[in-house]
Computed example of a mutant assay.
Amino acid sequence: MFGAFRSTFVAQSGLLWKNPFRMSATRKANVRKRLKAVDDVIATVSASGVECKALDQAMQLPRESEMLARDKYSVFSRHSKGHRKSLHKVPKFTKKTIRTSPPGF
């Protein structure tokens, strides 16, 4: 077809974004570095004497060194097979605090 509604290469081919199946070693290292940076910020703010509800909740979260690899690199997803989903498949995973899972998962 011609005009405004002609099909594009993207519409014909299908896949627009290519997500790798597994997380690369570099991405895993960046996740660990990000978690450690958040731990340092939480420790610094709590050492300064600030008290608030958000800080109390952050203190309850496990530190990066205490987390299992399963919890560092994957999240609970009730729609996925096995109820786990790789972290890099989560939208905006670099900006979310995902450190806990439901009990048993």
Rank of each mutant, 00 (worst) to 15 (best):
T44A: 14
L68K: 14
L35T: 00
S48H: 12
Y73F: 14
P102R: 09
R84P: 15
M1A: 15
S48W: 06
D71T: 09
G3W: 00
C52W: 00
A4C: 13
S13G: 11
K72I: 02
K18E: 08
L15N: 14
M1K: 12
E64S: 04
K89I: 11
Q60S: 07
H88S: 03
T44L: 13
Q12K: 12
R70C: 13
E66S: 12
G82S: 08
L15R: 11
A37L: 12
A37D: 14
K33T: 02
A25K: 09
S24P: 04
K72N: 03
K96Y: 14
M23R: 02
K96P: 11
A43L: 10
V75E: 01
N19L: 14
T26P: 02
R84E: 05
T44W: 10
A47T: 06
R70V: 12
A47M: 06
R70D: 13
L68D: 06
R78S: 08
T44D: 08
P62Q: 01
S46I: 03
L35A: 01
A54N: 04
A25Q: 15
T44F: 06
K72E: 00
H83G: 04
S101N: 11
V45K: 02
F9Y: 10
T26G: 12
H83F: 02
L55W: 04
R63Q: 03
H83D: 06
L35G: 00
G104S: 08
Q57G: 06
A54I: 03
M59D: 05
Q60R: 15
N30A: 13
S48V: 08
V75I: 12
R78V: 10
G49H: 08
S80G: 11
S46A: 11
M23G: 06
G14C: 09
H79M: 11
V45W: 05
R32E: 06
R34K: 05
T100I: 09
R22Y: 15
W17C: 14
I98T: 06
K92I: 10
A58R: 00
A29Q: 05
R84Q: 04
S13F: 11
G14R: 05
T100F: 03
T94M: 08
R27M: 15
T97W: 09
T8I: 13
L35R: 00
A43G: 06
S65W: 13
D71Y: 03
K36E: 14
E64A: 05
A43E: 15
T100E: 07
L16E: 14
F5P: 11
S48L: 08
R70N: 09
M23Q: 06
R22W: 13
A47W: 01
L15I: 15
F105M: 09
P103S: 07
G3Y: 01
L61S: 01
H88D: 00
A11T: 10
P91L: 12
R6I: 11
R27E: 07
P91T: 05
T8G: 14
L61G: 00
T26Q: 14
L16M: 09
I98R: 05
V41M: 05
R70A: 12
A11C: 11
L35P: 00
